[in-house]
Amino acid sequence: MATIAVIDYGMGNLRSVAKALEHVDDRSRIVVTHDPAEIRRADRVVLPGVGAIRECMAELRRLELDAVIHEVARNKPFLGVCLGMQALLTASEENGGMDALGVLPGQVRHFASGFADVGIAPPGKVPHMGWNQVRQARPHPLWQGIADHSWFYFVHSYFVPLLDDGLTAGVTHYGLDFTAVVARENIFATQFHPEKSQGAGLELLANFTRWNGTV
């Protein structure tokens, strides 16, 4: 039986992802764990996350998960969600500026500074909270069966700008275009919460449970 490890670093509602995976996949064993050995043994790995990047990085380092994440993100099908996506990038403006894991190149910015950069008034409230549409910037096995411009549930105050080299696999607009999905090789990471996005979200998770990590 295949195993999917959901990395548990004690923040927020991490179990939602596990419950949603169990709902779409009865062939895999879903483990919520911070045991490096168990994460290394898993066939697929999910890095979920809500909350603040400082706490997130502090907990990942305290549990000595940063090295493990770098290791498994090299070859296993790897799904990052929300803060779990932002943590994969180089650095974040949050909490006065924080180095993140640096698995993928990219900076995480606050919406306020993003809007200021392009000289626009905020299009609405921050956090960007609720349902918005995602344009599929390029084909990907995890988009299979999901209509372009499907709605997904977001909640975040920091965002990832559009990235170079085709890393942006999904784009959403909130005053400005930002990266809703970053993907490279075996890594697919979403700013939105697939586990809270009803049909389209469950479809994406189901695709992940079948994905071999190639594109």
């Binding site: 609405g124 960007h128 609720g130 344009r135 977001f154």
Partner: peptide, 8 residues
């Protein structure tokens, strides 16, 4: 493409 108003 825009943030939808929510019904709860």
């Amino acid at each position: 493409m825009t943030l939808a108003k929510r019904i709860i």
